[in-house]
């Protein structure tokens, strides 16, 4: 069973640096990284680029990237740039506590 090696809440204003920092922490022993997008209502082209780079890095290190609570508008952006197959998506059960 995969282990969650990192959990990161992404701030909309800091998507690019946050992903860069997360990328630096990726080690090469597999596992799973969970990025919480619940606070990201919109992404900009540089953030898309950063996600593309992050996905590539995670691939190289055999790390599975899980995006949590991506809103549908952002999901559509990722779909249009063909990035959705690079990530797993999960949603929090709205009844469960944070």
């Amino acid at each position: 069973m995969a282990t969650i090696s990192a959990w990161l809440k992404i701030d909309e204003e800091r998507v690019v640096p946050a992903l860069r920092e997360a990328g630096e922490k990726l080690n090469g022993d597999g596992g799973e990284v969970l990025l919480d997008f619940s606070c990201v209502s919109r992404i900009v082209p540089s953030a898309v680029k950063a996600m593309e780079n992050f996905a590539r890095l995670a691939d190289d290190r055999a790390v599975k990237v899980v995006l949590r609570d991506v809103n549908v508008d952002v999901y559509k952006v990722l779909k249009l740039v063909k990035l959705t197959p690079r990530f797993s998506f999960v949603s929090r059960d709205p009844r469960s506590p944070d």
Binding site: R42, I43, V44, P45, V48, K49, D73, V74, K76, V77, L78, L80, V81
Partner: peptide, 12 residues
């Protein structure tokens, strides 16, 4: 690629 990203982001 640049145009596609811009267009995708524009949908928001």
């Amino acid at each position: 690629s640049q145009a596609r990203t811009a267009a995708a982001v524009f949908t928001q």
